[in-house]
């Protein structure tokens, strides 16, 4: 602890009347015993209290995480077996069953969403990264993407409902995929733009200096070099989409049957893990509730693994 602060910082203790006065010895009224750290002084005590408060609050904030994980392992782990991956959802009062169709539905709809949003997102990012950062159009695209990130996911569902379900008269995996793709798009655009911008300018110059056209520069240098970062973004977007429920509630709805029952058809209601959890959680049957917990465990594992893969990619990114 420094004693001078008590003299200099007027907010803490009123200092000597005029520190620049000619004949004043600034240390005249300083008792050097004050150098010792003492909890009796309010500022030390407050410091300690606040530090402990902040530490406690941070730890408290982590309790839900551990609680969720433990509950998933405890309640979900009990019923986890091969059956849940292969069987269909049980009817009320029925025992056993699983949610194989929901896993398949989630995978298919996320793949569909990825198919739409990845090309759209990466090419938009290429455009953004090559235009000047301060150009108004690029700014508008970036702002739009940022707004879309904070967009309520249910509105993406409302949009897909209005465009696809109302128009083509039915709930479908396609409508679900479109709704999810809207949620994936901004994440992909923003992370891919960042990744492309992080490619060292000297590499771009080298390609241009050899006479590469802008397209060749993009495909042969920028995208390969930025690939780890772009993949990170894609993985994050997929993880987010896989866990989304709200946009699927009234676009893909739910189904108790396999998607490819009677031919592979994406234009029929489709089950997904997230909607299954929602539906089963509210049912008054223990079997369904148990299955909801197993489904939650599977979903969280799916999301976490995707996230971890994404983070593994991000470590391979090249910086300037």
């Amino acid at each position: 602890m420094n004693t001078q602060d008590a003299a200099i910082n007027p907010r803490i203790t009123p200092g000597p009347p005029d520190p620049v006065g000619p004949e004043v010895n600034p240390f005249a009224d300083v008792d050097f015993c004050e150098l010792e750290r003492s909890l009796r002084r309010p500022r030390t005590l407050v410091d300690l209290l606040l530090s402990n408060l902040v530490s406690a609050m941070t730890m408290l904030a982590l309790i839900p995480l551990f609680s969720v994980v433990l509950m998933l392992l405890w309640r979900g782990g009990q019923r986890l077996s091969l059956d849940v991956f292969t069987q269909l959802p049980p009817a009320p009062m029925e025992q056993g069953g699983g949610f194989g169709n929901a896993i398949l539905g989630t995978l298919i709809m996320v793949a569909l969403a990825a198919l739409i949003s990845i090309p759209l997102g990466i090419l938009s990012a290429v455009y953004l990264a090559q235009s000047r950062p301060e150009s108004p159009f690029a700014g508008a695209v970036r702002f739009g993407a940022k707004i879309l990130t904070g967009f309520p996911s249910i509105l993406a569902g409302v949009f897909a409902y209005g465009v696809l379900v109302l128009t083509f008269g039915g709930y479908s995996a396609i409508a679900g995929g479109v709704a999810l793709s809207i949620l994936m798009l901004p994440t992909i655009i923003l992370t891919a733009e960042d990744a492309i911008r992080m490619v060292p300018a000297k590499m771009r110059d080298a390609a241009i200096g050899m006479g590469a056209t802008p397209t060749q520069t993009t495909w042969m240098v920028l995208l390969p070099t930025a690939m780890p970062g772009i993949l990170t973004g894609i993985m994050l977007a997929i993880a987010r989409a896989a866990g989304e429920t709200a946009p699927l509630l009234f676009t893909a709805l739910f189904s108790n049957y396999w998607l490819f029952r009677g031919g592979f058809d994406l234009k029929q209601p489709t089950a997904s893990l997230a909607v299954l959890i929602y539906n089963f959680a509210g049912m008054p049957f223990d079997n369904q509730v148990d299955l909801a917990w197993v489904a939650a465990l599977v979903l969280v594992l799916l999301v976490l693994v995707t996230n971890l893969i994404g983070q593994a990619f991000s470590r391979r990114q090249i910086h300037e």
Binding site: A140, V141, F151, G162, T215
Partner: peptide
Amino acid sequence: QQVVDTAFRWLCCGFACLSVLMVALIMLEI
């Protein structure tokens, strides 16, 4: 190569427009 170059640049621009229009599209539809 030149044709591909021009086409690709327009494609990127078009996709970027589509992305920025997405917000507007959603609002209009609703």
